[in-house]
């Protein structure tokens, strides 16, 4: 942290690095919560509590749902959490217009319907939508590029919240900036609502490849890497030491089949989000169950073959070269 202040980088980066320094400070104070010398009563919203929640979701599938009935189907199929939203990404693409946080009544309805954790999405940078979701008692917030961004320069200061956040990333720098802002989980940013997994694959390979590269650098080179990645030095150094992100890495965007889910796991995702892929398919309950099994047995082709049979129609896919630039979500976020 002090190092970042001793070496202020030039120009536009200064502000983001200084913000990141503040974040790292928060991280430290939030991590040291209770000691024998200072036994506080209890502490909510600490970094360990938030990242710990993300760890609990690993190996489980998080499914997009738009009604309490769908939430029940997802829960019965073995989802570890549901993402409550008004329209799945495929419909957001179809409808166009500004996509926002869901109606609180709708989110309440889903919280009532299931007992597994409930997540919901806010627009990038829209910290008031996040305040509302936290007040509603959602268990995790997705600051999501699938909704229309509310801020073209800054993401939400996620340290300021008790509820944990997941954010999307296309590469390591983006992932580490989000972690610097307080994200407790990172997911890939595959093109949601397309049923096409190619972008998620690219992001997983990119993030994992860059992590491996960091592991080969010496101390001096890590300073340069932090500058190139436009990410807080302390987080860069931690990733180099751990050989992984300090928070869980999931995959999201375009997962439509059991094999897609297993592909993401084999590429290093600790689990997957499935958006339009389930409830835009012919037999949602069966497909949801199959994706849960394939996510768990991702290294066992026989299981994946077995669960891939007789699933009915998959969602209709969109080829990304048919997608107008303005319709690409992965570029949203900074």
């Amino acid at each position: 942290m002090e190092r970042a202040q001793e070496r202020p980088p030039a120009g536009a980066m200064t502000r983001s690095i200084l913000r990141a320094s503040v974040s790292v400070q928060n991280l430290e104070s939030a991590t040291v919560a209770n000691t024998a010398e200072n036994p506080t009563e209890s502490t909510v919203g600490t970094t360990r509590v938030k990242r710990g929640m993300a760890e609990q979701l690993k190996n489980g599938v998080i499914m997009d749902v738009v009604t309490p009935e769908q939430a029940k189907i997802a829960e019965d199929a073995g989802a570890v959490a549901v993402m409550a939203l008004e329209r799945v990404p495929a419909d957001i693409r179809r409808d166009g217009g500004v996509a926002r946080m869901s109606d609180p009544d709708m989110i309440d309805g889903i919280i009532e319907a299931v007992s597994i954790p409930v997540m919901a999405k806010v627009r990038i940078g829209h910290f008031v939508e996040a305040q509302v979701l936290q007040a509603l008692g959602v268990d995790f917030i997705d600051e999501s590029e699938v909704l229309t961004p509310a801020d073209e320069a800054y993401h939400i200061d996620k340290w300021a919240f008790t509820v944990p956040f997941v954010c999307g990333a296309t590469n390591l720098g983006e992932a580490l900036r989000r972690i610097g802002e307080g994200a407790a989980m990172i997911r890939s940013k595959g093109e949601a609502g397309t049923g096409n997994v190619v972008e998620a694959t690219r992001h997983m390979r990119q993030i994992r490849g860059e992590i491996r590269r960091l592991g080969t650098l010496d101390e001096a080179e890590l300073f340069g890497a932090a500058k190139e990645l436009r990410a807080p030095y302390d987080v860069v150094k931690e990733v180099a030491r751990l050989g992984k992100l300090p928070v869980p890495l999931f995959s999201a965007g375009g997962v439509a089949t059991p094999a897609d889910a297993a592909l993401m796991r084999q590429l290093g995702a600790e689990s997957v989000f499935v958006g339009s892929g389930i409830f835009k398919s012919g037999d949602p309950a069966k497909r949801a169950d199959a994706i849960v099994q394939a996510t768990l047995h991702y290294n066992d082709p026989e299981v994946i073959a077995k669960v891939s049979r007789g699933l009915g129609e998959a969602m209709v896919g969109i080829n990304l070269d048919e997608l107008d630039e303005s319709q690409r979500y992965a570029g949203r976020g900074w």
């Binding site: 209770n34 909510v44 954790p117 509820v163 944990p164």
Partner: peptide, 15 residues
């Protein structure tokens, strides 16, 4: 009792 301490926003640390 499952989830006795509440939802995630009430999750906490204690000694």
């Amino acid at each position: 009792r499952r989830n006795a301490f509440g939802r995630q926003t009430e999750s906490f640390e204690a000694a």
